[in-house]
């Protein structure tokens, strides 16, 4: 049943460029990018119990890595760009994560928020490096070594780049699925549920939280690098705290207790935002109301409504959040 559903979804995604209009096909591109980002974010929240309110930092790292490599260093191969983005994120996340995972709950959220804003003000103020609020251009990358610049931009996005993104998402999903169903994934869930008990069973709580942080940062950067080519432009808003809030929103909208929930959230968010904006300019009002409704009435998100078992985690949890 589950497999059949997954196969159907994959078939629909693969067929989409041939059946849907270019406009909707290009809307799928941010969906793929955000899906990669959210797979990582949910490893940290849904599986490890840490809410990052600064994950836009790593989206920014990935997006600016793509911009720097294509427009400053002439590195056009997207494979190299994605690897470099992930590598840069790991290097940056390792020390930041080391500090952040010493705290939980609101203190963790605040520390990640502060790091995110630190990076944002760097992007904004060091304009001679980063282009300031103008941002930077992301040139059309080569895919698998092929320079496709003779193809019209829209055609490039809706065919080769579309399928390229699908493959990246598929690989990212497969790897994340392995991670959450590994012994390591089990330890993360134990840490989320009760860190004291996990520690007394010999689980290195801080070290595993740190692994989860670094992995999720790498995912965010890969997703961030995929965001660039669609718009051809990156700017500091990618790293702003409201962007962090929005991806948390997507995660909650779909449901963090389910592996695919955040992906559903990303899809609904992007297409609903597009629909609402075509009717009224006030998408934030509508989305704020939706978020409030989810938090109050359906903390399990859309997938939680389908799968009632998963909801109770949002209840007041068991450990104190104060730092030592």
């Amino acid at each position: 049943m589950r497999r059949a559903g997954l196969a159907l979804v994959v078939a629909l995604i693969l067929a989409m460029p041939f059946v849907a209009g270019d406009y909707y096909v290009t809307l799928m591109l941010p969906f793929f990018a955000y899906s990669v980002i959210l797979l990582g974010l949910n490893l940290l929240f849904g599986y490890t119990g840490l809410l990052s309110f600064g994950h836009a930092l790593f989206i920014g790292v990935g997006a600016y890595a793509a911009a720097f490599l294509t427009s400053k260093f002439g590195v056009m191969h997207l494979e190299a760009i994605l690897l470099a983005a992930a590598g840069a994120a790991v290097l940056i996340a390792a020390p930041i994560g080391g500090l952040c995972v010493r705290y939980v709950k609101i203190y963790f959220a605040m520390l990640t928020l502060a790091f995110g804003m630190l990076f944002h003000s760097f992007l904004l103020k060091f304009y001679f490096v980063t282009g300031g609020d103008e941002g930077m251009r992301v040139l059309q990358p080569f895919l698998l070594g092929f320079d496709l610049s003779q193809i019209p931009k829209v055609r490039f996005l809706t065919r080769p780049f579309y399928y390229y993104s699908v493959v990246v998402l598929a690989v990212a999903t497969f790897v994340m699925w392995r991670i959450v169903s590994s012994p390591f994934g089990l330890c993360l869930r134990a840490i989320r549920d009760n860190p004291d008990k996990a520690q007394s069973l010999g689980v290195s709580v801080k070290r595993y939280r740190w692994y989860a942080f670094v992995i999720s940062a790498a995912y965010a950067a890969v997703g961030g690098a995929l965001l660039g080519p669609t718009t051809g432009q990156v700017d500091p808003n990618l790293a702003y705290w409201t962007h962090s809030g929005n991806i948390v929103f997507m995660m909650l909208l779909g449901g963090f207790a389910n592996f695919f929930g955040p992906l559903v959230g990303a899809l609904v968010f992007i297409f609903l935002q597009d629909t609402v904006m075509s009717i009224v300019p006030y998408w934030r009002l509508v989305f704020g109301a939706i978020l409030a409704l989810i938090v109050i009435a359906a903390p399990g998100g859309l997938m939680g409504l389908l799968d009632r078992r998963a909801v109770s985690w949002g209840e007041k949890s068991r450990q104190g959040g104060a730092p030592p």
Partner: peptide, 16 residues
């Protein structure tokens, strides 16, 4: 969780 911890397999990220 306890068995994984005792066998030192908690760091296995990709094994099933």
């Amino acid at each position: 969780v306890a068995v994984v911890s005792r066998l030192g397999r908690g760091g296995r990220l990709f094994s099933s």
